[in-house]
């Protein structure tokens, strides 16, 4: 398990470092990036679906959903 976690964290760091040298995008060049569909947050409506997935699956977190509160016991 720890090996897999280590690999995941390392991979995340590698991806971040890979993009650290990206060319800077100026404000006026962000027409596509500013589109609502490009938002990096989950959609407003994902709130409901993420909640039931949190209850119906053992895994949760890192998806904008609930990380606590509510028993989910039904």
């Amino acid at each position: 398990m720890k090996r897999k976690l280590f690999i995941s964290v390392s991979l995340a760091c590698f991806v971040l470092m890979s993009f650290s040298s990206c060319s800077s995008v100026k404000g006026f060049q962000k027409m596509y990036l500013n589109d609502a569909e490009m938002a990096l947050d989950p959609r407003m409506l994902d709130y409901f679906e993420t909640n039931f997935q949190t209850y119906r699956e053992g895994a949760s977190g890192s998806n904008g959903g609930k990380v606590g509160g509510g028993c989910g016991c039904n």
């Binding site: 964290v9 995340a12 991806v15 971040l16 993009f19 650290s20 990206c22 060319s23 995008v25 060049q29 962000k30 027409m31 596509y32 990036l33 490009m38 990096l40 949760s60 977190g61 890192s62 990380v67 606590g68």
Partner: peptide, 23 residues
């Protein structure tokens, strides 16, 4: 719950977000 997130614009048409959480 503690979380760390980093978002990065890659180019004019791509961006990514990495999030590490501990609960």
């Amino acid at each position: 719950n503690a979380s760390f997130g980093l978002s990065k614009v890659i180019n004019r048409k791509m961006q990514l977000f990495i999030q590490l959480e501990g609960t």
